[in-house]
Design a protein around this nucleic acid. Structure first.
Length: 580
RNA sequence: GCACCAGUAGCUCAGCUGGAUAGAGCGUCGCCCUCCGAAGGCGAAGGUCACAGGUUCGACUCCUGUCUGGUGUACCA
């Protein structure tokens, strides 16, 4: 793709005196067939040449010779439209896709640079709610996108595993008199239940809140018994998290939670506080220690409470300082919902005030909230407490069951039904999370969450399945491809509308990956997947492959489409299954 | 009050680093399986791009203001 634009720029450059890189950036992909395959708008030239854009275009169309691989150049209402030689276009695109294989669409932009991505980061002792899926999958997808751009990616799960909440768990656990045996059999459901029973009990006995604070204070002070309990709770939580992440095919390089930064035994918090004190930006206010941010239009950042304990932002400061030192990152992304944008503005501003010149390499990558319908019928942020939230495992199970029912109807023969159904369920849920811009709020409704029709995960997975099925039947599924295989193909076979539409999309893959990285939004790739699935279904509907006179050539297109579609699917976390 | 985000077809959304005739899915009304997977394809109907200004050769896209909705806003994370 970029080579086509470069070829055009090399022709326009000398004729206009414009910078070739600038020309490349200005070239657009037209929407209509009569506008060619690549367009260069001549409007910006009008001022410097003092001539009407359509005249400039007409003149250039007459004088310029089409670059190799192009048949003609036409002027149309101020645009210079370039028409590719479709057979040659097919040769170039298919050769590149098939010979580069898994490296097609990759880039070395990030060579030698490291990126830290903080995502998912759930709270300990609680089950993953449906809304956690969004941040988890956006972060997961971005990690794959940046890896493909050549960056070394560090995927960090910053667990919420420290704070008064864990005092609550300890108090309730001891109060309900659990035996060591029960400790061994502790489940995430039981832990989650301790929170609810705590809030219920606290209504009767207000001293419980104090007990919880004291219990946490004891934990912070290094009490061995409490620390063992805490570690046990953490392990129970991690077990469930790993189970769900495995289903989603999500992984992390570091599981470093708040405890790592807040617990005195690790020394990270003290280091951060020393930096804060040495820079003398802490001021006393209402008994607490804050960084005054009024000059920047923000409320003060509360660093230390009046009782001396620290807060969320204090730990995030410690984490940022640690990450900078430990990873020497080029960028550090925080994939966290939009509700926390003030927090991150404050965090980054404090880093700046601390003289950390790398503060602008930290970036909040926000995403919209999952809204649930309240009793009053309004759409509001989901609250686990009031029950207006759904557990991820429940949604996954419901989706899998519905898929199983659909499979029984459409394809009773499908092997490995349960596992396959779960992969389709994951694909469906993940695709609907990522296909829209990340900033959009999402309204959770069961009907909609379990709707698998139209522009959905199953639709895009099905396109991949059909391609795989044809390759399997033709015995071409795993064959490696060399230049020799591509010699002497009748490339003009791909000039029809449906074949060319697929090729046109395949050529755009690298640009789409770059765009997803730049916008930090996987929806670019999800939309690309949708277009490619669309073009694939149309191609397969209109062009018989196996047994046709064009079989040999078309199988290469099928293989190329399968390769790119499969890679794009994996990049957005939708399983690229081979049958369904 | 202030801040962040969103407002495009009946519904859910693409399109937004300014470019030609604003696109999908769902829903509605039709059509296509002796044919590699119909979880598919084809067609019809459906739009003052919230509103008002501004910048520009050109604005759904950028700027300002207004309205509507979501979220946040000092000792939770």
């Amino acid at each position: 793709m970029t080579t086509f634009k470069r070829d055009i720029a090399r022709v326009i450059g000398p004729a206009t005196g414009l910078d070739e890189a600038a020309i490349e950036g200005a070239i657009t992909l037209p929407q209509h067939a009569d506008q060619g395959n690549f367009s260069f708008p001549c409007f910006p030239l009008a001022k410097q040449l003092r001539k009407a854009p359509n005249l400039i275009a007409e003149e250039l169309a007459k004088t310029l010779a089409p670059p190799a691989g192009f048949t003609r150049i036409e002027a149309l209402s101020g645009y210079l439209n370039f028409f590719v030689d479709k057979a040659d276009f097919a040769r170039r695109v298919l050769s590149e896709v098939l010979l580069r294989g898994a490296a097609y669409g990759a880039s070395d932009e990030g060579r030698g640079k490291r990126i830290v991505i903080d995502y998912s980061s759930p709270n300990m002792g609680k089950e993953l709610a449906f809304h956690h899926l969004r941040g988890t999958m956006i972060g997961h997808s971005l990690s794959r996108v940046f890896a493909r751009r050549g960056y070394a990616v560090e995927r960090v799960n910053h667990l919420g595993d420290w704070g008064t909440s864990y005092g609550k768990l300890i108090v309730m656990f001891l109060r309900e008199g659990m035996s060591p045996n029960e400790l061994e059999n502790l489940t995430i459901e039981r832990l989650n239940g301790l929170y609810t029973s705590f809030s219920r009990a606290a209504e009767q006995d207000p001293t419980l809140e104090d007990q919880a604070r004291q219990a946490f204070a004891r934990l912070e002070a290094g009490d061995a018994e409490y620390y063992a309990l805490w570690a046990n709770f953490r392990e129970v939580t991690l077990r469930e998290l790993r189970r769900l992440y495995a289903i989603l095919n999500v992984d992390f390089d570091a599981w470093v939670g708040e405890e790592f930064f807040a617990n005195a035994r690790h020394g990270k918090l003290q280091a951060a506080l020393e930096v804060l004190e040495s820079k003398k930006i802490l001021v006393e206010s209402q008994g607490a220690e804050v960084v005054d941010l009024e000059a920047f239009g923000m409320p003060p950042a509360l660093i230390r409470k009046s009782d001396g304990s620290t807060l969320y932002i204090t730990r995030d400061l410690a984490a940022a300082l640690y990450r900078h030192e430990h990873y020497a990152f080029e960028r550090c992304f925080y994939v966290v919902d939009n509700g926390q944008s003030l927090h991150f503005q404050q965090l980054f501003k404090v880093l700046e005030l601390l003289g950390q010149e790398w503060h602008d390499r930290c970036e909040h990558v926000p995403f919209g909230l999952v809204l649930h319908k309240s009793e009053e019928g309004n759409w509001e942020k989901g609250k686990t407490r009031s029950g207006h939230s759904s557990l991820l495992k429940d949604v996954l199970e419901a989706a899998r069951d519905k898929i199983l029912a659909i499979m029984a109807e459409k394809n009773p023969e499908a092997a490995q039904k349960d596992g396959l159904a779960l992969q389709i369920a994951v694909g469906a849920l993940v695709f609907s999370e990522l296909k829209n811009r990340r900033m959009n709020d999402i309204r959770f409704e069961w009907d909609q969450a379990l709707s698998f029709e139209g522009d959905s995960g199953p639709y895009v997975q099905n396109a991949h399945v059909r391609l795989c099925s044809i390759l399997r039947k033709a015995g071409r599924a795993d064959k490696s491809i060399s230049d020799k295989d591509l010699a002497n193909l009748r490339w003009e076979i791909f000039a029809d509308e449906e074949s060319f539409a697929v090729l046109d999309l395949l050529a755009q893959f690298g640009d789409k990956v770059a765009s997803a990285a730049l916008s930090r939004d996987p929806c670019v790739l999800a939309q690309f997947v949708l277009s490619l699935a669309d073009a694939t279904h149309r191609f397969l509907h209109n062009s018989r492959v196996i047994g046709s006179p064009e079989e040999n050539e078309r199988l290469f297109l099928v293989r190329a489409a399968q390769s790119v579609l499969g890679q794009a699917l994996e990049m957005i976390g939708v399983p690229a299954i081979e049958s369904m």
